[in-house]
């Protein structure tokens, strides 16, 4: 069963709706004691990474999150929180991945936010992308991206520059796109996470 970590950053209606459609059981984590009821976790998040980190710190759950050893998936800003730093609000983050979250340079050709369906290319073998062809489209909406890194990038995408569409380190995963809004491949990814 998936525990969704609640810390007040954004609405999760679409995520829980997707889990319900897929028949994936889930519950909410509001305190440290809630963690042990679940065998995997999702850190959601939309909005401002710096503000999200402040809210997460206020919950007191940061040390527990950093020590998790079960599969944990950050989505969008929830993924960015796993990195060391974001240019958004010049913020220090969880540092579970020693890589940075940077802002896209906007131009007439590369508009920001990066909005819409872009292709995702797995860089490593991992069950999270099982039954998802390389180059499948996922739905993105973000102004900040996680830099591409040989060690931690699980799948990449291109928008002005190559960046991390997803990252992976031990039990920690992050996806920049919104699997709950990414059609059938997004649903496949959520199901894959549930089976990890």
């Amino acid at each position: 069963m998936i525990g969704i970590i609640r810390y007040g950053a954004g609405n999760i209606f679409s995520l829980t709706a997707a889990l319900e459609r897929l028949g994936i059981p889930y519950g909410m984590i509001n305190s440290e004691a809630d963690f042990e009821q679940y065998d995997r976790y999702i850190i959601p998040g939309v909005g401002h990474a710096g503000a999200a980190m402040k809210k997460l710190e206020q919950t007191g759950l940061v040390p527990t999150i950093k020590a998790l050893n079960k599969p944990t998936l950050g989505i969008c800003v929830g993924m960015q929180l796993l990195t060391s730093y974001s240019e958004e609000g010049n913020s220090n983050l969880l540092n579970l991945f020693p890589i940075k979250t940077l802002r896209f340079k906007d131009s007439n050709l590369y508009k920001v936010p990066h909005t819409g369906w872009n292709q995702v290319f797995p860089q490593k073998e991992n069950p999270l992308f099982e039954n998802i062809p390389s180059g499948s489209h996922f739905y993105f909406v973000h102004s900040y991206f996680i830099e591409y890194d040989e060690a931690y990038t699980l799948s990449s995408a291109n928008y002005n520059n190559k960046f991390s569409a997803s990252i992976w380190r031990d039990n920690f995963y992050g996806v920049q796109f919104h699997p709950e809004k990414s059609g059938t491949y997004g649903e496949t990814l959520l199901t894959n996470f549930y089976k990890l």
Binding site: S14, A17, E20, R21, E180
Partner: peptide, 11 residues
Amino acid sequence: VKSVARQINIP
């Protein structure tokens, strides 16, 4: 909006 979000997997 709730009915749409429950059943549709695109934005």
